[in-house]
Amino acid sequence: MERKVHVQTTINGEPAEFLCEPRQSLLECLRDILNLTGTKEGCNDGNCGACTVTMDGRIVTSCLVLGVEAEGAEITTIEGIARGNELHPLQKAFLEEAALQCGICTPGFIVAAKALLDQEPHPTEERIRWWLANNLCRCTGYDKIVKAVQKAAQEVTL
C-alpha cells in the first residue's frame, strides 16, 4: 500500500514536519514541499554540490538523502545562514569579492564553506580547495570564491 510518511525534523532551528513519499529526496522535500528553494538541484547524483545542506552538523548533498531520513535530524539550509537581517560574513564576502556570477552554485558553496569555517577558522588555500571540491562552479573559475572564503575567515575570527 503506497502511503506517504510523516517526518518530524528541525530546519534552520525551527521544528518542521511534512508528508513525503519514501522515494522523495531531502532536496525534493525542501524545495517542493517546504518551498525552501534556495537549495538547488544541479545533477541529482551528488557531484555538483548545489544542493548542499548540513544534516546534524555535517554537510551532505541533499539529493542523496531521502526525505524520510530527516526524521529527528537537524537540517540547515542557505535560508538559515544569515543572522536575521544581517548577512553572514561569508555572504558579505561573496558579494564584496564578486564571488558569484550566475549564483546557482552560491547557496551550496556558502553552506559548505560555513561548515568549514565553523570547524576550522584558519584554513589554508589548499584546505579550502579540498573542502570545496564537491561544489562545482562553472562561472568563476573558483578564484574569487576561494578569496571570499579567505576573507570571511579573517572576519569570522576578528
Partner: peptide, 9 residues
C-alpha cells in the same frame, strides 16, 4: 572517497 559532502554519508 567522493568529496566532503559524500564523506558525510
Amino acid at each position: 572517497i567522493g568529496g566532503t559532502q559524500i564523506q558525510g554519508r
